[in-house]
Design a protein around this nucleic acid. Structure first.
Lengths: 187, 187
DNA sequence: CCGAATGTTCAGTATATACTGAACTATCGA
DNA sequence: TCGATAGTTCAGTATATACTGAACATTCGG
Protein backbone atom coordinates (compact mmCIF):
# COMPACT_ATOMS: atom_id res chain seq x y z
CA UNK A 1 0.00 0.00 0.00
CA UNK A 2 1.22 3.45 -0.88
CA UNK A 3 1.50 6.06 1.90
CA UNK A 4 -1.48 7.93 0.48
CA UNK A 5 -3.72 4.89 0.67
CA UNK A 6 -2.14 3.83 3.94
CA UNK A 7 -3.11 7.03 5.72
CA UNK A 8 -6.71 6.83 4.58
CA UNK A 9 -7.02 3.18 5.54
CA UNK A 10 -5.48 3.79 8.95
CA UNK A 11 -7.76 6.75 9.57
CA UNK A 12 -10.90 4.78 8.79
CA UNK A 13 -9.72 1.93 10.92
CA UNK A 14 -9.51 4.37 13.81
CA UNK A 15 -12.80 6.06 13.03
CA UNK A 16 -14.48 2.69 12.71
CA UNK A 17 -13.73 1.94 16.35
CA UNK A 18 -15.45 5.13 17.40
CA UNK A 19 -18.51 4.16 15.44
CA UNK A 20 -18.82 0.71 16.89
CA UNK A 21 -17.34 -0.82 13.75
CA UNK A 22 -14.19 -2.75 14.33
CA UNK A 23 -10.86 -1.72 12.94
CA UNK A 24 -10.47 -4.44 10.36
CA UNK A 25 -13.95 -3.89 8.97
CA UNK A 26 -13.18 -0.19 8.60
CA UNK A 27 -9.86 -0.86 6.93
CA UNK A 28 -11.23 -3.44 4.52
CA UNK A 29 -13.90 -1.03 3.50
CA UNK A 30 -11.50 1.88 3.16
CA UNK A 31 -9.23 -0.12 0.90
CA UNK A 32 -12.10 -1.25 -1.30
CA UNK A 33 -13.33 2.29 -1.49
CA UNK A 34 -10.02 3.57 -2.83
CA UNK A 35 -9.24 0.73 -5.17
CA UNK A 36 -10.63 0.81 -8.67
CA UNK A 37 -10.56 -2.88 -9.39
CA UNK A 38 -12.38 -5.36 -7.15
CA UNK A 39 -10.20 -7.25 -4.67
CA UNK A 40 -10.36 -10.78 -3.35
CA UNK A 41 -9.97 -11.94 0.23
CA UNK A 42 -6.38 -12.99 -0.35
CA UNK A 43 -5.34 -9.54 -1.58
CA UNK A 44 -7.14 -7.78 1.24
CA UNK A 45 -5.56 -9.98 3.91
CA UNK A 46 -2.17 -9.48 2.32
CA UNK A 47 -2.43 -5.69 2.03
CA UNK A 48 -3.78 -5.15 5.52
CA UNK A 49 -1.61 -7.76 7.20
CA UNK A 50 -4.47 -9.64 8.81
CA UNK A 51 -5.64 -13.24 8.56
CA UNK A 52 -7.94 -14.54 5.84
CA UNK A 53 -10.52 -15.51 8.42
CA UNK A 54 -10.61 -12.00 9.75
CA UNK A 55 -11.14 -10.66 6.23
CA UNK A 56 -13.83 -13.23 5.61
CA UNK A 57 -15.78 -12.14 8.68
CA UNK A 58 -15.27 -8.48 7.89
CA UNK A 59 -16.60 -8.94 4.38
CA UNK A 60 -19.68 -10.68 5.72
CA UNK A 61 -20.20 -7.77 8.09
CA UNK A 62 -19.89 -5.28 5.23
CA UNK A 63 -22.35 -7.29 3.18
CA UNK A 64 -24.75 -7.00 6.11
CA UNK A 65 -24.43 -3.25 5.80
CA UNK A 66 -24.91 -3.54 2.05
CA UNK A 67 -21.72 -1.60 1.60
CA UNK A 68 -19.89 -3.96 -0.71
CA UNK A 69 -20.80 -5.73 -3.86
CA UNK A 70 -19.64 -9.20 -4.75
CA UNK A 71 -18.45 -9.61 -8.30
CA UNK A 72 -17.10 -12.66 -10.05
CA UNK A 73 -14.51 -12.69 -12.71
CA UNK A 74 -14.96 -15.16 -15.58
CA UNK A 75 -12.56 -18.05 -15.24
CA UNK A 76 -11.73 -17.23 -11.61
CA UNK A 77 -13.32 -19.01 -8.70
CA UNK A 78 -12.36 -16.36 -6.18
CA UNK A 79 -14.87 -13.82 -4.92
CA UNK A 80 -14.03 -10.24 -5.71
CA UNK A 81 -15.43 -7.39 -3.69
CA UNK A 82 -15.83 -3.74 -4.52
CA UNK A 83 -17.38 -0.84 -2.66
CA UNK A 84 -20.60 0.83 -3.69
CA UNK A 85 -20.37 3.32 -6.53
CA UNK A 86 -20.65 6.82 -5.18
CA UNK A 87 -20.25 8.39 -1.80
CA UNK A 88 -23.97 9.08 -1.94
CA UNK A 89 -24.75 5.41 -2.23
CA UNK A 90 -22.58 4.74 0.78
CA UNK A 91 -24.25 7.46 2.76
CA UNK A 92 -27.66 6.08 1.96
CA UNK A 93 -26.68 2.51 2.77
CA UNK A 94 -25.26 3.47 6.14
CA UNK A 95 -28.22 5.67 7.02
CA UNK A 96 -30.71 2.99 6.05
CA UNK A 97 -28.94 0.32 8.04
CA UNK A 98 -28.45 2.46 11.11
CA UNK A 99 -32.10 3.30 11.07
CA UNK A 100 -33.05 -0.34 10.88
CA UNK A 101 -30.69 -1.41 13.64
CA UNK A 102 -30.78 1.50 16.03
CA UNK A 103 -33.52 4.00 15.37
CA UNK A 104 -36.35 1.53 14.85
CA UNK A 105 -35.72 -0.44 18.08
CA UNK A 106 -35.44 2.83 19.99
CA UNK A 107 -38.69 4.18 18.60
CA UNK A 108 -40.36 0.93 19.42
CA UNK A 109 -39.13 1.05 23.01
CA UNK A 110 -40.30 4.64 23.40
CA UNK A 111 -43.68 3.80 21.92
CA UNK A 112 -44.02 0.95 24.37
CA UNK A 113 -43.31 3.30 27.26
CA UNK A 114 -46.17 5.55 26.18
CA UNK A 115 -48.65 2.74 26.72
CA UNK A 116 -48.06 2.66 30.48
CA UNK A 117 -50.08 4.77 32.89
CA UNK A 118 -47.78 5.22 35.86
CA UNK A 119 -49.08 6.49 39.17
CA UNK A 120 -45.68 7.53 40.52
CA UNK A 121 -44.88 11.20 39.75
CA UNK A 122 -41.26 10.36 38.92
CA UNK A 123 -42.46 7.85 36.36
CA UNK A 124 -44.85 10.36 34.94
CA UNK A 125 -42.06 12.81 34.42
CA UNK A 126 -39.89 10.12 32.86
CA UNK A 127 -42.73 9.23 30.53
CA UNK A 128 -43.09 12.83 29.42
CA UNK A 129 -39.38 13.03 28.68
CA UNK A 130 -39.59 9.87 26.63
CA UNK A 131 -42.54 11.28 24.75
CA UNK A 132 -40.53 14.39 23.94
CA UNK A 133 -37.73 12.23 22.62
CA UNK A 134 -40.12 10.06 20.72
CA UNK A 135 -41.68 12.96 18.89
CA UNK A 136 -38.39 14.40 17.75
CA UNK A 137 -36.98 11.02 16.80
CA UNK A 138 -40.10 10.16 14.84
CA UNK A 139 -40.00 13.47 13.03
CA UNK A 140 -36.30 13.22 12.19
CA UNK A 141 -36.72 9.65 11.11
CA UNK A 142 -39.50 10.51 8.69
CA UNK A 143 -37.55 13.43 7.38
CA UNK A 144 -34.49 11.38 6.63
CA UNK A 145 -36.68 8.89 4.93
CA UNK A 146 -38.08 11.54 2.66
CA UNK A 147 -34.73 13.13 1.95
CA UNK A 148 -33.42 9.78 0.85
CA UNK A 149 -35.98 9.76 -1.89
CA UNK A 150 -34.66 12.99 -3.32
CA UNK A 151 -32.06 12.77 -6.06
CA UNK A 152 -28.46 13.52 -5.11
CA UNK A 153 -28.73 16.65 -7.24
CA UNK A 154 -31.70 17.93 -5.28
CA UNK A 155 -29.96 17.19 -2.01
CA UNK A 156 -26.85 19.04 -3.10
CA UNK A 157 -29.01 21.95 -4.11
CA UNK A 158 -30.79 21.89 -0.76
CA UNK A 159 -27.53 21.76 1.13
CA UNK A 160 -26.05 24.60 -0.85
CA UNK A 161 -29.08 26.67 -0.07
CA UNK A 162 -28.24 26.12 3.57
CA UNK A 163 -30.02 28.24 6.10
CA UNK A 164 -31.43 30.44 3.37
CA UNK A 165 -34.04 27.74 3.20
CA UNK A 166 -35.56 29.54 6.13
CA UNK A 167 -36.60 32.38 3.89
CA UNK A 168 -38.49 29.95 1.75
CA UNK A 169 -40.05 28.44 4.83
CA UNK A 170 -41.17 31.71 6.29
CA UNK A 171 -42.82 32.59 3.03
CA UNK A 172 -43.83 29.08 2.13
CA UNK A 173 -47.58 29.43 2.19
CA UNK A 174 -47.64 32.73 0.42
CA UNK A 175 -45.01 31.50 -1.99
CA UNK A 176 -47.04 28.53 -3.06
CA UNK A 177 -50.15 30.66 -3.28
CA UNK A 178 -48.44 33.30 -5.39
CA UNK A 179 -47.02 30.71 -7.72
CA UNK A 180 -50.35 28.94 -8.01
CA UNK A 181 -52.04 32.16 -8.85
CA UNK A 182 -49.25 33.14 -11.19
CA UNK A 183 -49.23 30.16 -13.50
CA UNK A 184 -50.92 27.19 -11.85
CA UNK A 185 -47.78 25.08 -11.38
CA UNK A 186 -47.91 24.61 -7.63
CA UNK A 187 -50.87 23.19 -5.71
CA UNK B 1 -35.54 2.27 39.58
CA UNK B 2 -39.01 1.59 38.28
CA UNK B 3 -39.44 -0.85 35.37
CA UNK B 4 -40.28 2.05 33.06
CA UNK B 5 -37.06 3.87 33.82
CA UNK B 6 -35.16 0.62 33.94
CA UNK B 7 -36.04 -0.30 30.37
CA UNK B 8 -35.01 3.08 29.01
CA UNK B 9 -31.74 3.08 30.93
CA UNK B 10 -30.91 -0.45 29.80
CA UNK B 11 -31.70 0.40 26.19
CA UNK B 12 -29.42 3.41 26.16
CA UNK B 13 -26.68 1.45 27.82
CA UNK B 14 -26.90 -0.98 24.92
CA UNK B 15 -27.15 1.70 22.27
CA UNK B 16 -24.21 3.51 23.80
CA UNK B 17 -21.97 0.56 23.07
CA UNK B 18 -22.92 0.69 19.42
CA UNK B 19 -22.04 4.34 19.29
CA UNK B 20 -18.64 3.96 20.84
CA UNK B 21 -19.93 5.26 24.17
CA UNK B 22 -19.56 2.83 27.01
CA UNK B 23 -22.48 1.29 28.78
CA UNK B 24 -22.15 3.13 32.07
CA UNK B 25 -21.86 6.50 30.37
CA UNK B 26 -25.01 5.75 28.40
CA UNK B 27 -26.87 4.64 31.50
CA UNK B 28 -25.82 7.57 33.62
CA UNK B 29 -26.97 9.90 30.93
CA UNK B 30 -30.24 8.07 30.40
CA UNK B 31 -31.05 8.27 34.09
CA UNK B 32 -30.25 11.96 34.28
CA UNK B 33 -32.37 12.53 31.22
CA UNK B 34 -35.42 10.95 32.81
CA UNK B 35 -35.06 12.36 36.28
CA UNK B 36 -36.48 15.75 37.04
CA UNK B 37 -34.29 16.66 39.96
CA UNK B 38 -30.48 16.70 39.63
CA UNK B 39 -28.68 13.65 41.02
CA UNK B 40 -25.35 13.29 42.77
CA UNK B 41 -22.68 10.66 42.18
CA UNK B 42 -23.79 8.62 45.15
CA UNK B 43 -27.36 8.32 43.92
CA UNK B 44 -26.28 7.44 40.40
CA UNK B 45 -23.90 4.74 41.59
CA UNK B 46 -26.58 3.37 43.86
CA UNK B 47 -29.33 3.29 41.23
CA UNK B 48 -27.19 1.78 38.51
CA UNK B 49 -25.31 -0.61 40.75
CA UNK B 50 -21.83 0.54 39.73
CA UNK B 51 -18.94 1.97 41.67
CA UNK B 52 -18.57 5.64 42.53
CA UNK B 53 -15.32 5.84 40.58
CA UNK B 54 -17.05 4.54 37.50
CA UNK B 55 -19.74 7.19 37.86
CA UNK B 56 -17.14 9.85 38.43
CA UNK B 57 -15.36 9.00 35.19
CA UNK B 58 -18.62 8.73 33.30
CA UNK B 59 -19.71 12.16 34.47
CA UNK B 60 -16.40 13.65 33.35
CA UNK B 61 -16.93 12.03 29.96
CA UNK B 62 -20.44 13.48 29.72
CA UNK B 63 -19.12 16.89 30.66
CA UNK B 64 -16.67 16.54 27.79
CA UNK B 65 -19.63 16.08 25.50
CA UNK B 66 -21.33 19.02 27.14
CA UNK B 67 -24.32 16.85 27.80
CA UNK B 68 -24.70 17.42 31.50
CA UNK B 69 -24.81 20.47 33.66
CA UNK B 70 -23.33 20.69 37.11
CA UNK B 71 -25.54 22.33 39.67
CA UNK B 72 -24.93 22.97 43.33
CA UNK B 73 -27.52 22.97 46.02
CA UNK B 74 -27.19 25.56 48.77
CA UNK B 75 -25.94 23.98 51.96
CA UNK B 76 -24.83 20.79 50.22
CA UNK B 77 -21.27 20.11 49.22
CA UNK B 78 -22.13 17.37 46.79
CA UNK B 79 -22.17 17.96 43.05
CA UNK B 80 -25.52 17.47 41.42
CA UNK B 81 -25.83 16.72 37.74
CA UNK B 82 -28.71 17.14 35.37
CA UNK B 83 -29.09 16.61 31.65
CA UNK B 84 -29.49 19.41 29.18
CA UNK B 85 -32.94 20.90 28.87
CA UNK B 86 -34.57 19.76 25.69
CA UNK B 87 -33.95 16.94 23.29
CA UNK B 88 -32.95 19.61 20.79
CA UNK B 89 -30.17 20.81 23.02
CA UNK B 90 -28.94 17.27 23.33
CA UNK B 91 -29.06 16.75 19.61
CA UNK B 92 -27.07 19.90 19.01
CA UNK B 93 -24.49 19.08 21.64
CA UNK B 94 -23.89 15.62 20.23
CA UNK B 95 -23.73 16.86 16.67
CA UNK B 96 -21.31 19.63 17.56
CA UNK B 97 -19.05 17.33 19.49
CA UNK B 98 -19.04 14.60 16.87
CA UNK B 99 -18.13 17.12 14.27
CA UNK B 100 -15.26 18.37 16.34
CA UNK B 101 -13.92 14.92 17.16
CA UNK B 102 -14.62 12.99 14.00
CA UNK B 103 -15.63 15.07 11.04
CA UNK B 104 -12.96 17.75 11.38
CA UNK B 105 -10.02 15.32 11.60
CA UNK B 106 -11.40 13.40 8.64
CA UNK B 107 -11.78 16.52 6.52
CA UNK B 108 -8.29 17.54 7.46
CA UNK B 109 -6.89 14.16 6.41
CA UNK B 110 -8.73 14.29 3.11
CA UNK B 111 -7.54 17.82 2.46
CA UNK B 112 -4.00 16.72 3.13
CA UNK B 113 -4.35 13.94 0.58
CA UNK B 114 -5.35 16.46 -2.08
CA UNK B 115 -2.00 18.19 -1.78
CA UNK B 116 -0.10 15.19 -3.13
CA UNK B 117 0.62 14.71 -6.83
CA UNK B 118 0.98 10.98 -7.17
CA UNK B 119 2.48 9.44 -10.32
CA UNK B 120 1.05 5.98 -9.75
CA UNK B 121 -2.33 5.48 -11.48
CA UNK B 122 -3.72 3.58 -8.48
CA UNK B 123 -2.86 6.50 -6.24
CA UNK B 124 -4.43 8.90 -8.69
CA UNK B 125 -7.64 6.97 -8.57
CA UNK B 126 -7.50 6.83 -4.79
CA UNK B 127 -7.00 10.56 -4.69
CA UNK B 128 -10.02 11.15 -6.88
CA UNK B 129 -12.15 8.99 -4.57
CA UNK B 130 -10.95 10.94 -1.58
CA UNK B 131 -11.78 14.17 -3.35
CA UNK B 132 -15.29 12.91 -4.00
CA UNK B 133 -15.66 12.09 -0.35
CA UNK B 134 -14.18 15.38 0.70
CA UNK B 135 -16.63 17.38 -1.35
CA UNK B 136 -19.67 15.66 0.03
CA UNK B 137 -18.38 15.71 3.59
CA UNK B 138 -17.55 19.39 3.34
CA UNK B 139 -20.96 20.17 1.93
CA UNK B 140 -22.82 18.14 4.54
CA UNK B 141 -20.70 19.62 7.28
CA UNK B 142 -21.48 23.15 6.24
CA UNK B 143 -25.12 22.33 5.92
CA UNK B 144 -25.37 20.91 9.40
CA UNK B 145 -23.62 23.95 10.67
CA UNK B 146 -26.20 26.19 9.09
CA UNK B 147 -29.15 24.10 10.20
CA UNK B 148 -27.92 24.33 13.75
CA UNK B 149 -28.37 28.05 13.59
CA UNK B 150 -32.04 27.71 12.76
CA UNK B 151 -34.50 27.79 15.61
CA UNK B 152 -36.01 24.48 16.67
CA UNK B 153 -39.33 25.76 15.34
CA UNK B 154 -37.89 26.38 11.88
CA UNK B 155 -36.28 22.98 11.87
CA UNK B 156 -39.51 21.28 12.83
CA UNK B 157 -41.25 23.18 10.08
CA UNK B 158 -38.59 22.15 7.58
CA UNK B 159 -38.81 18.53 8.65
CA UNK B 160 -42.58 18.49 8.42
CA UNK B 161 -42.34 19.88 4.93
CA UNK B 162 -40.28 16.81 4.10
CA UNK B 163 -39.62 16.10 0.48
CA UNK B 164 -42.12 18.72 -0.57
CA UNK B 165 -39.18 21.04 -0.08
CA UNK B 166 -38.20 19.88 -3.51
CA UNK B 167 -41.07 21.85 -5.02
CA UNK B 168 -39.73 24.96 -3.41
CA UNK B 169 -36.27 24.13 -4.66
CA UNK B 170 -37.34 23.59 -8.21
CA UNK B 171 -39.10 26.89 -8.17
CA UNK B 172 -36.65 28.62 -5.92
CA UNK B 173 -35.27 31.24 -8.27
CA UNK B 174 -38.61 32.14 -9.71
CA UNK B 175 -40.16 32.06 -6.29
CA UNK B 176 -37.78 34.58 -4.86
CA UNK B 177 -38.13 36.73 -7.93
CA UNK B 178 -41.89 36.70 -7.77
CA UNK B 179 -41.89 37.57 -4.11
CA UNK B 180 -39.37 40.32 -4.59
CA UNK B 181 -41.47 41.78 -7.32
CA UNK B 182 -44.61 41.28 -5.29
CA UNK B 183 -43.69 43.21 -2.15
CA UNK B 184 -39.97 43.62 -1.84
CA UNK B 185 -39.50 41.26 1.11
CA UNK B 186 -37.01 38.82 -0.40
CA UNK B 187 -33.66 39.87 -1.80
C1' DC C 1 -6.35 22.31 62.79
C1' DC C 2 -8.83 18.04 62.76
C1' DG C 3 -12.10 14.74 61.15
C1' DA C 4 -15.75 13.68 58.12
C1' DA C 5 -17.62 13.93 53.63
C1' DT C 6 -16.92 14.35 48.75
C1' DG C 7 -14.52 13.87 44.55
C1' DT C 8 -10.43 11.99 41.77
C1' DT C 9 -6.91 8.92 40.30
C1' DC C 10 -4.85 4.73 39.39
C1' DA C 11 -3.10 -0.06 39.67
C1' DG C 12 -4.98 -4.34 39.25
C1' DT C 13 -8.55 -7.30 37.56
C1' DA C 14 -12.51 -8.65 35.08
C1' DT C 15 -14.90 -8.71 30.93
C1' DA C 16 -15.74 -8.13 26.25
C1' DT C 17 -14.13 -8.01 21.70
C1' DA C 18 -11.01 -8.88 18.03
C1' DC C 19 -8.07 -11.94 15.78
C1' DT C 20 -5.59 -16.12 14.52
C1' DG C 21 -4.73 -20.69 12.83
C1' DA C 22 -6.36 -24.96 12.04
C1' DA C 23 -10.06 -27.92 10.83
C1' DC C 24 -13.87 -28.26 7.95
C1' DT C 25 -16.94 -27.70 3.77
C1' DA C 26 -17.75 -26.75 -0.96
C1' DT C 27 -16.55 -26.45 -5.60
C1' DC C 28 -13.86 -26.74 -9.59
C1' DG C 29 -10.70 -28.82 -13.04
C1' DA C 30 -8.37 -32.71 -14.59
C1' DT D 1 -13.22 -39.21 -8.21
C1' DC D 2 -9.36 -36.98 -6.49
C1' DG D 3 -6.47 -33.12 -5.43
C1' DA D 4 -6.19 -28.32 -5.24
C1' DT D 5 -8.14 -23.98 -4.25
C1' DA D 6 -11.47 -20.93 -2.08
C1' DG D 7 -14.41 -19.83 1.58
C1' DT D 8 -16.29 -20.57 6.39
C1' DT D 9 -16.41 -21.68 11.13
C1' DC D 10 -14.82 -22.00 15.59
C1' DA D 11 -12.00 -22.88 19.78
C1' DG D 12 -8.35 -20.74 21.85
C1' DT D 13 -5.70 -16.67 22.65
C1' DA D 14 -4.46 -11.97 22.51
C1' DT D 15 -5.71 -7.37 23.15
C1' DA D 16 -8.41 -3.62 24.44
C1' DT D 17 -11.70 -1.65 27.32
C1' DA D 18 -14.47 -1.25 31.35
C1' DC D 19 -14.78 -1.45 36.12
C1' DT D 20 -13.55 -1.83 40.96
C1' DG D 21 -11.61 -0.70 45.39
C1' DA D 22 -8.32 1.51 47.77
C1' DA D 23 -5.32 5.35 48.27
C1' DC D 24 -5.07 10.11 47.73
C1' DA D 25 -6.60 15.05 47.40
C1' DT D 26 -9.71 18.62 48.54
C1' DT D 27 -13.02 21.09 51.03
C1' DC D 28 -15.97 22.14 54.63
C1' DG D 29 -17.78 22.53 59.42
C1' DG D 30 -16.62 22.57 63.97
Amino acid sequence: MSPLIQSFVAHFGEMGSRWGINRTVGQVYALLFLTERPLNAEELAESLGVSRSNVSISLKELEGWQLVRLTRQPGDRREYYSSLGSVWDIFRAVAAERRRREVEPTLSMLRQAQLESPADPADRHAQRRMEEMYELAELANGWFDELQRLSPESLVQLMKLGSKVQKLLVLKDRTLAVLAQGDGVAR
